[in-house]
Amino acid sequence: MKVKGNKLLMLIGTAWLFDALDVALLSFIMPVIKQSWHLTAGELGAVSAVTSLGMMIGALVCGYLADKVGRKPVLIGTLLLFSVGNLLLTVTPSVGWFIAVRFITGIGLGGELPVAATIIADNFTGTKRSRMLVLVDSFWAFGWIIASLLSFLVMPKFGWRMTVLITALMGLYALLVRRHLPEEAPAERSNQRPFGAALRQVFSVEYRRATICLSVLWFVIMFAYYGMFLWLPSVLVLRGFSIVHGFGYTVLMSLAQLPGYYLAAWLMGKVPRKALLAVYLMGTMLSAAAFGLATSAMMILISGAWLSFFTLGAWGIMIAFTPGQFAVDARGMGMGFAQSIGRIGATIGPFLVGALMGAGIKIPGIFMVFVGALIVGILVLLFGLRDNDRH
């Protein structure tokens, strides 16, 4: 069944929307359950870490299954895990059950993005493929906006359980819509190798360099994004900027992502992808430095908006860059492995910020850690990766 580009964009965009919705909603829910269940800092950290652990496993396993059994059934399965997980979350009686359910939900969330990206990569080529992958990643911003609306309008009146129930029902609706995803040709699920052999394939001479460099880049981008953005409200409150708790600030940071995505999509085909990604990573680095050094509310808003613009734009370009480094029979595993390493960065980033703050390191010093990581990412990109685009 042939699905037109715009329709496929909308169908696959739900993967990024629900991932962002879940990440953002969890950041709003955590202070609420901390107070109602009297959680320690360690228990609250476990809630965040177990989600990242599930996402790491989900990216690797679902990427492999996408090559073995097909993209469509695996993508539908990931959304089913997300929806069922959130339904179960609404009835969790304690933090222990909450953590267990979050692990299951994380597997679905982590598996969605690499599989979704492979579907777009399989259905388009060249500049069209790159643009579609950046545009589909832009749905992340809409997920954050929806989470903000739910958190500021629904959660205060009806509680976090009802808010999570709404997201679960939204997931079930999207599950019905995904029946219209295109069926793969037999060639697109030709990799019947066992898991170990599939993993060895992406580390073969043909793919080793790309796999290692992409894994480092995904680690850096997720380390920086989750480390900075999950801690931004707490960091700014400590510095006396209560503005970050407002609905307007949250929506502004989400809206600032959209022009970053759309400019990157427009520049695809006009500027080499390596050069474009390098510019966005350098923009992220400079914005992080400016944010860490900001001393006024206006500077917080301006540098924070630029940080959103460049960080998420870089993520979108990475989504466009990664699948084309692998042929179709290794694409799911290659994408899944690289993103699973990225999820390790997503786990380390927030914990490192907390540890550095506990050790008395000042905010500018903490943000310089992210600047250093981004410099490593830029060097790996420029000297390690080739701008391949395999069909």
Rank of each mutant, 00 (worst) to 15 (best):
F247W: 03
G316M: 03
G260M: 00
S234F: 06
G5V: 00
F310A: 04
M55N: 01
W140Y: 13
A373T: 09
Q257M: 15
V216P: 06
R239N: 06
G63Q: 15
I363Y: 12
W266V: 03
A224R: 04
K7L: 14
G108E: 03
H391S: 12
L217V: 05
V3K: 07
T322P: 04
P350D: 03
L276H: 07
H180N: 15
E112C: 04
A256F: 10
W266E: 03
F195V: 12
A20P: 05
G45F: 00
K68D: 06
L176E: 10
L232P: 01
M10I: 11
A355Y: 12
D389N: 15
I300G: 02
L65N: 13
R71H: 12
S215L: 04
G70P: 10
W160D: 04
F321V: 01
L9F: 15
M56G: 15
D22G: 04
G358M: 00
Q339G: 01
I375T: 12
L60V: 12
D389F: 13
V50C: 02
P31L: 01
G63C: 13
L252D: 05
F370C: 01
A265I: 05
G13S: 11
L381C: 03
W16L: 08
S94G: 10
V154R: 05
M155C: 00
L382C: 08
L263C: 08
L356C: 06
A330L: 09
A256Q: 11
A116D: 04
V244N: 02
D22R: 04
V115A: 13
T311Q: 06
R178A: 07
W37R: 12
L81I: 02
V164M: 14
I378N: 05
L89A: 13
A289M: 10
G143P: 11
E184M: 13
M335K: 06
L382D: 03
Y64W: 14
G372I: 07
V205T: 15
Y262H: 13
Y261F: 15
F321G: 02
F28G: 00
L53M: 14
R179I: 03
A305K: 06
P272L: 07
L109E: 05
T125V: 05
F219D: 09
K4G: 14
L286A: 13
M1R: 08
I104C: 00
T211N: 12
F309Y: 11
R273F: 02
K34V: 06
I57D: 04
L307K: 08
